[in-house]
Design a binder for these strands. Structure first.
Length: 580
RNA sequence: GCACCCAUAGCUCAGCUGGAUAGAGCGUUGCCCUCCGAAGGCAAAGGUCGCACGUUCGAAUCGUGCUGGGUGCACCA
């Protein structure tokens, strides 16, 4: 139940009626007509800009349109007042029954209150994390993982059929390095001194890989050259790394639907097919690139390469898909991978990238646009850096100093719930500070705590009422006479609840899960506010002497709890029932 | 040199695809526990929305040009 959508439909109906009676001309586009909460609550419950946006196309004065519209809207039983204000706003005040119905809807629908059919079952693929399988996930990956997962939850909540996907970069040189690094650990497992040369991965996490290799191969590889073992060890080590990464993701509460392998694309003809498709559109050609301006490498020399004409899509330069030695660049299999996603029938693609991949966005969008004939939109969300803080100082990560912070470190210190929530307290394209001390603080300073505290208070009320012998099951609350909710402060809280479905809709349209976190904070603040008003005005306490009144007030509180749980569910955060 | 991102209260940030007198938290100042959890709440002070033009009924939001910060810039992935 989205009351804002309902009232907007009412406005559009009224406008159509005005057309039918000749007050407004035919052929108007109502797309720009909005119904939203006014900035100032004193203006009413909702405001529509209809008169202003229609003034020009109709050639009528905004106020005249607004007057006519107001008369129509007042005929609806939900509308209590309709006042023309300012340059032509139409401010609506709705009868209290509307807000009581919202509370009732939240109780009846439960977690489905706020769910929408906006996605209409469209299939959307959310690719995120996609960390190289060469080591454990570190803090840099956490934000992308959380944002991607929460976004996937949000889209599922709004009627999309969502696939969470991880692209394993197991086809390039870095997995060879992994194999060589693992081989040194394999030698170490046999009591030999490992030679962790410059450029190899020094991390301890490869020691178990070396032991596992010993387990599997005994000493049979020890005296062999790389040409013998590289492929096998690479495969083995990559799989172990992916197992570790899956474990890391699980610790954060993320589970992928599909893991796609870059390596698996080689030798299948898929890369060639994708490139040839582009070639057929005259988007692939042999040529040389001009040297980069401003930062010309010392050893630059023109090379003949196979290039993708991404400049046709607004990119700065065309991008190589094949190196001068005839092997593919990273971009080529990635094109094939995205082509594969298109062919799997997704209606929409979303990628979550780290901000350091910003330069990659245009070419990837260009490729998808070309390969899908412009039908499949690709939205790429760039997730900015997370700056770690500890004891009031920036915490620098360094592999050498041993202050390399893994995802596990963060989750073990802060907990998955706190980590997830904090990662969503910024929009994705803004850098985020993660303060180890702050996130564990139990105060208003910490938004996770603040929201959880609100939920705990909801449950506290329910518990107390139950101890007093009341039936506060949802079934009982659904039968409450909400007419007892009459105080403006109570109705204001109901109005905040009414915004939830609208907020979900807005967040989903923008692929912006952080909006859910901010909304929950506001909702929590409103609950805390009402709670404290009970200190001065006992009639605002939720538990009253009169059972019917209590039931109505508790229903309101419970409705807040329902929304908080829904919201936290989207964020992937477990609601707590009690603070400790 | 080019591309992308950012710039809003002293600090950290929201701002609902262009709406009314721009909002929170922290910090500062003053209040509120005989009472459902004060781990909270109320109130005050605090702003040329980086700058300048432009688009229109109307701009923090859209466009252009600057300024200042971040990221990335051939045969790396």
């Amino acid at each position: 139940m989205n009351i804002f959508a309902d009232i907007r439909a009412l406005v559009v109906d009224a406008l159509s009626a005005l057309q039918a009676e000749g007050t407004l001309p035919q052929g108007l586009d109502f797309a720009a007509v909005t119904v939203e909460p006014p900035r100032d609550a004193g203006h009413g419950d909702m405001a529509t800009n209809a008169a202003m946006v229609l003034a020009k196309p109709t050639g009528k004065a905004p106020r005249a349109i607004a007057e006519a519209l107001a008369a129509r809207l007042l005929a609806d039983p939900r509308v209590e007042a309709a006042d023309v204000a300012g340059p032509g706003f139409l401010n609506l005040r709705l009868v209290p029954g509307v807000w009581r119905d919202v509370v009732a809807a939240a109780l009846v629908q439960g977690q489905d209150f706020g769910r929408s059919h906006y996605g209409a079952g469209a299939r959307v693929n959310v690719e995120f994390v996609s960390a190289n399988p060469t080591g454990p996930m570190h803090v840099g990956h956490v934000r992308g993982a959380v944002v991607g997962d929460a976004l996937a939850n949000l889209l599922a909540y709004t009627g999309f059929e969502v696939t969470r996907e991880y692209y394993i970069n197991d086809g390039g040189a870095q997995v060879d390095v992994l194999a060589r690094s693992a081989f040194e650990r394999y030698r170490e497992a046999h009591g030999l001194e490992p030679e962790i040369r410059e450029g190899l991965y020094p991390g301890d996490y490869l020691i178990p890989v070396g032991e596992a290799l010993k387990e599997k191969y005994g000493d049979s590889l020890l005296d062999k050259g790389e040409e013998v073992w590289l492929a096998d060890v690479r495969e083995f080590a990559t799989q172990m790394m992916m197992q570790m990464i899956r474990g890391d993701l699980a610790a954060l509460g993320v589970s992928m639907d599909v893991y796609s392998s870059e390596k698996a694309l080689y030798g299948t003809g898929k890369i060639e097919a994708a490139i040839n498709t582009l070639r057929g559109m005259d988007l692939i050609y042999e040529g040389t690139l001009a040297p980069p301006k401003g930062k010309e490498p010392e050893d630059w020399e023109p090379r003949m390469q196979t290039l993708f004409r991404s400049t046709a899509f607004g990119d700065d330069v065309d991008r190589p898909v094949m190196k001068s030695d005839g092997s593919w660049t990273y971009f080529a299999p990635d094109i094939a991978y995205h082509y594969d996603k298109v062919q799997r029938g997704f209606h929409q693609l979303i990628n979550i990238f780290g901000a350091d991949h910003g330069g990659y966005v245009k070419r990837m969008k260009a490729a998808v646009s070309a390969l899908s004939d412009g039908r499949v939109p690709l939205d790429i969300k760039l997730v900015q850096l997370v700056k770690l803080w500890k004891n009031g100082e920036p915490f620098k990560m360094s592999k050498r100093a041993g202050t390399f912070v893994t995802l596990r470190d963060v989750v073990e210190r802060a907990g998955a719930d706190v980590t997830r929530f904090i990662m969503l307290t910024r929009k994705n394209d803004v850098a985020l500070d993660f303060d180890f001390d702050k996130v564990l603080e139990q105060s208003k300073d910490n938004p996770v705590f603040y929201v959880q505290y609100a939920n705990a208070r909801v449950n506290s009320v329910l518990r107390r009422a139950a101890e007093g012998g009341m039936d506060v099951s949802d079934a009982a609350l659904c039968g409450a006479d909400l007419g007892h909710l009459a105080h403006p402060a109570e109705l204001a809280l109901a109005k905040k609840i009414a915004e939830w479905p609208r907020l979900v809709d807005i967040a989903a349209r923008g692929n912006e899960p952080h909006r859910v976190a901010f909304y929950l904070y506001e909702l929590a603040a409103d609950l805390h506010g009402l709670w404290n008003r009970g200190n001065d005005d006992t009639s605002l306490r939720f538990i009253q002497d009169d059972a019917a009144t209590s039931l109505a007030k508790i229903a309101l509180v419970r409705a807040v709890g329902v929304v908080i749980c829904s919201g936290l569910g989207i964020l992937g955060v477990t609601p707590v029932e009690e603070m400790r």
